[in-house]
Design a binder for these strands. Structure first.
Lengths: 229, 229
DNA sequence: ACTTTGTGTTAAAAAAAGTTAAGCATTGTT
DNA sequence: AACAATGCTTAACTTTTTTTAACACAAAGT
């Protein structure tokens, strides 16, 4: 109920990074610090976050690109950008990517906290803090423990099965872009990873066959879509 | 409560090294001096430090590489770099590796002291000086004395068991990178050490079996993850 | 229609991890 | 010095997980 908010913080300057990390932790949040966008993207796909704070300028992958990649697979998670520049164009680009807020360095810790809380108040009403448990038709799926509670025989999913089903669930009834999914789970959207994903789709279909209202539908050339009638 | 701060000092120049060592000792710190990065890395993995001071230029393994290796298994421990060069690029590289501070030689002892205390003030508020005692589910684990207090029969862990479980605990709920772990505990991530680690994972699982909320989960191709439900 | 590209599915191959036990040093004990 | 005990590594075998291959078919473009 009163679960701690899980924050993904992407910041390359560790002076600021560690400072924010310890500050937010002291305020009762769980914080994961990633030192560049690429690492942050991997972390995002490996666990589950309720809130994102991204520095705009980072090596490997900047904050905007990171947000763009994440938005392809998660349309809801709140994102707050940090930037040194106070330029208008940046501000706009950030918001067009689905930013929920924006702060220009330097800023006060208390103000950051206030904004996080404001965003969460706004969001929490609609979206219950996710604990990675989904109902797929009548089948329960816990992405944390990787358990799929099918009627006949609960199954422990493998890493890849779990990641893929989780993405499908988080985007229920929406088309999950093929390339974006591959980048999120396999790190690269080449041909072979694509075929690999198709194999996993087949596996998931077999596992979910027990409830005939569940369908993993293909949208030719676009991606897959989890549909529950 | 008022435990002495344990400092790991990596410095190849013995003149400076011994000077710093005795100065810091006189100020009430426990100090371990390592003459190169490789030795420092080994020391770090064998005991437990609250603070690191690394010279940037050292034989065998330089301060930056050392910091990078350490950051893979410990994201929090404060690191302060010492360098002869006052070059900007170095400074930046240091910070991106998770440096908390940076000093250019020559520097005054008193200034060093002031900086250590400043960093510790910042850190100490959130993070209690770790005494290496963890709660793994309902099982107490003291990495200092190597005791695992299982209900049935408290066990004294072996060196390797202890190191591995400690790393898992310090990174609870996060994926502990396979290669990084091997380098930290075995010094080398070759095939055989990998198999050895798998044997130890099996041993730990058996020891922790008594509490079924504890799970050492494998993330295929990435590493292991200690999960407590 | 026909050709290309994308997907469905199953099976085989390859890679990674789990497990048990044998081997081999190192240490301490009698 | 012989012996046992301990801790770690290596080997051997098993199982799991992921990738690649192969073949069938469907969708879209020409």
């Amino acid at each position: 109920m009163d679960k701690k908010l899980n924050i993904l913080l992407a910041e390359d300057d560790d002076n600021l990074g560690l400072l924010l990390h310890s500050f937010l932790k002291s305020k009762g949040f769980l914080v994961e610090l990633a030192r560049n966008g690429k690492l942050a993207f991997e972390k995002f796909n490996q666990s589950s976050f309720d809130f994102c704070i991204f520095d705009v300028m980072m090596p490997e992958m900047d904050g905007f690109t990171l947000a763009k990649e994440i938005r392809e697979i998660d349309k809801k998670v709140p994102i707050l950008f940090l930037t040194a520049k106070s330029m208008k164009e940046d501000k706009l680009e950030g918001f067009s990517l689905g930013a929920d807020d924006y702060m220009t360095k330097p800023f006060s810790m208390e103000e950051l906290l206030a904004r996080i809380e404001a965003i969460m108040r706004r969001v929490e009403t609609t979206q219950v803090l996710e604990d990675d448990v989904f109902m797929v038709g009548k089948i329960k799926f816990d992405a944390q423990s990787r358990m799929l509670y099918t009627q006949v025989q609960p199954t422990k999913l493998t890493t890849k099965e779990n990641q893929l089903l989780k993405l499908l669930c988080k985007n229920e009834n929406e088309i999950l872009d093929r390339q974006a999914t591959l980048r999120a789970i396999w790190g690269d959207d080449n041909y072979f990873n694509g075929r690999s994903m198709d194999v996993y789709i087949a596996k998931l279909r077999k596992l979910l066959r027990e409830d005939d209202r569940i369908e993993i539908m293909n949208v030719h050339g676009k991606g897959f879509q989890l549909i529950i009638k």
